[in-house]
Nucleic acid binder design. Structure first.
Lengths: 137, 137
DNA sequence: ATAAACTATGAAGTGAACTCTAGGGCAAGC
DNA sequence: GCTTGCCCTAGAGTTCACTTCATAGTTTAT
């Protein structure tokens, strides 16, 4: 698979793919060179890029991913570190989910304020004040 | 309250607070000037910054926040837009929560692979291959 | 055989959100 | 009255994750 084909398949630009390679997110398993110096990508590249996108979507930096997305080429010392990282991420995600729930509460409040504002500004004001009273973060 | 005090209270730097002001996230309700030109912050500034942090933590840009974090100073036309924005955000958060659940699955898989790798590399290999077999994103 | 469409490189540019520096003004303690 | 530690502004620098540019080699279609 050549670079444009991979880019289309993944919804990335060829620039981004080359950038990821430069950043060390792709290696021999994913990309090789033909005699004309063109890059050829394996199916593993597709899987790798999917994983990159997935981790990225939950807020991992490329640097962080680079550390962790090593399957075969890792040695025993780093394995424990990666296990620790995974456990840390799991906790991080759990607490993010909780934060999201609190955010949904906040948005609900904002929504009822906004809706009330549309047809009864005075009552909306009172509502707003009643929230200012509580000292929640 | 002077800027350093607010910064300490909020866990921000004074630079960040001034930056937010420049970006239009704070107004007369939150910050005023003393005769010596020093900024003085009200309690509303604290509430506002908490809200900024909250929205920011779920991935809102400062530009987006600027649009939305207007309580009193907004007019009727924009009210409906803000209601729409809130509804959009709510959906966004729901789908993010689902993405997080899928992520937790992925991390679980990675974790069992890593743990197995520590004491039975061959079995770990098999596990890895069994996942490559499925074509989930 | 020549143009269009692909590939390559290295380096510069972009936008978001800070972060820091330079150069200066005020304020409190000794 | 001098040092120390806040405060001010304007603007430059940083990091991340791209994105674009300039230049050039390769492949494919007509």
């Amino acid at each position: 698979m050549k670079i444009q084909e991979l880019a289309d398949k993944m919804g990335l630009t060829i620039h981004t793919i080359r950038f990821y390679e430069k950043e060390g997110l792709l290696d021999e398993r994913h990309v090789r060179r033909e005699s004309n110096n063109y890059r050829t990508y394996s199916e593993e590249a597709v899987a790798r890029l999917k994983l990159v996108k997935k981790f990225q979507s939950i807020g991992c930096s490329l640097a962080e991913l680079k550390e962790v997305l090593q399957d075969h080429d890792s040695n025993a010392q780093t394995n424990q570190q990666i296990i620790d990282w995974i456990r840390g991420k799991q906790e991080e995600i759990e607490s993010k989910k909780k934060e999201y729930d609190r955010m949904l509460d906040t948005l609900d409040k904002m929504l009822s304020y906004r809706i009330l504002l549309a047809d009864d500004p005075q009552k909306a004001e009172e509502l707003l004040k009643s929230w200012h009273a509580d000292t929640s973060d």
